[in-house]
């Protein structure tokens, strides 16, 4: 057991997770803001790498975007404090407070940084960016949730996420757009209830984790690499089922959160919203399937001289999670017993 732990990274990961806890458990807006700042400053060293220009650029961009967002957040918090009474709700202030949070999580009108930064990260950092970094802004959004405005944002997220991914060949950008699309479902779920959001977020991060780990271990960054390389069939199939699960096709686990959200949206009479979500998830499904053509068609011309070696050997450990992600739907009702 001579794992060579990078203690610096351990430290920053700890602070990253801890800062999220600070801001989601804080009971004043200022505390939330502090958590966000610590979060930003701990994520920067994690993604920057002196040897890789792309990563450095990504960390710089991330810093710029996030710091602008948090400056605005601070400004609007203070403005709200000065001009509004306690517990007074004002539409303008709600929008003003929602906007920087949307910017923080890479939601639609401010989504442009998101695929760009994803392009410069390693898969594990991509995973952190797509899931963990969204927790804080999402929870903060739920404190001050302006329905009429955010429904607009949801529709924008859904459409931009779906249309942005159509012509992509970079898997990281695809996953980024898929994350933007999923953001719309997540905001919708937090509109319904926080438990719903928790469930959606957990299942989304599970599937996303598996996808990112798979891409990480196989060292795949572009769509055509799926065709080039001699990956074992079973691995390709698990990858395909995971993507279908992410797309929300029925027999897989990913269907469950979408089912729940559609159910509640329909009960609350959000018909047009649901229709847009559903039709856009169809487009999402299109490019998920395009990513996995190579595993759908069992025989095709392979290049024999490419050998892919799995980076880590703990694939077998992931098998159980894979099986859960593929066939976990019957078990998913257990999530109601939280």
């Amino acid at each position: 057991m001579n794992y060579n732990f990078n203690t610096n990274k351990m430290f920053f990961y700890f602070i990253l997770f801890f800062s999220t806890m600070i801001s989601i458990s804080s009971n004043s807006w200022l505390g939330c803001w502090i958590g966000l700042e610590i979060n930003l400053l701990s994520f920067i060293p994690l993604i920057s790498n002196v040897n890789n220009l792309l990563m450095t650029e990504a960390s710089l961009k991330y810093f710029l975007v996030q710091s602008i967002a948090s400056i605005n957040l601070l400004f609007f918090i203070l403005m709200k404090m000065f001009f509004l009474k306690n517990f007074e709700f004002n539409k303008i202030y709600m929008i003003l407070l929602n906007l920087p949070l949307l910017m923080k999580m890479g939601s639609a009108p401010f989504h442009f940084w998101f695929p760009n930064i994803m392009e410069g990260l390693s898969w594990l950092n991509c995973f952190i960016l797509m899931t963990w970094q969204k927790i804080t802004p999402m929870i903060l959004l739920s404190y001050y949730f302006f329905n009429n405005f955010l429904i607009f944002i949801m529709i924008m997220n859904s459409i931009i996420g779906a249309l942005g991914g159509i012509n992509q060949i970079s898997l990281r950008k695809l996953m980024a757009f898929s994350s933007i699309n999923n953001l719309s479902w997540m905001i919708a779920s937090i509109m319904i209830s926080e438990n719903m959001w928790l469930m959606y977020f957990l299942i989304y991060s599970l599937i996303n984790l598996l996808m990112c780990m798979m891409f990480f271990m196989l060292n795949i960054f572009y769509i055509n690499q799926m065709f080039f390389s001699n990956i074992k069939l079973i691995i390709k199939l698990t990858m395909m089922f995971n993507l279908l699960s992410l797309g929300g096709l029925p027999p897989f686990l990913g269907f469950f959160p979408k089912w729940m959200i559609i159910n509640y949206l329909i009960i609350n009479k959000f018909f047009i919203l649901t229709f847009i979500f559903i039709m856009m998830s169809l487009i999402m499904l299109f490019f998920y399937i395009r990513m996995t053509y190579s595993s759908f068609i069992l025989n095709y011309i392979k290049l024999k001289w490419f050998k892919i070696k799995m980076k880590n050997s703990f694939f077998s450990l992931f098998n159980i999670i894979y099986i859960f992600s593929m066939l976990g739907l019957p078990l998913s009702t257990l999530l109601f017993y939280f």
Partner: peptide
């Protein structure tokens, strides 16, 4: 793709409809 998207395109509204009926 034809098979998948023809059927899914039409059946996702069915999904909404079922929940409407359920409601």
């Amino acid at each position: 793709m034809y098979l998948l998207f023809y059927t899914l395109f039409a059946s996702l509204p069915l999904f909404m409809g079922i929940f409407f009926i359920f409601d």
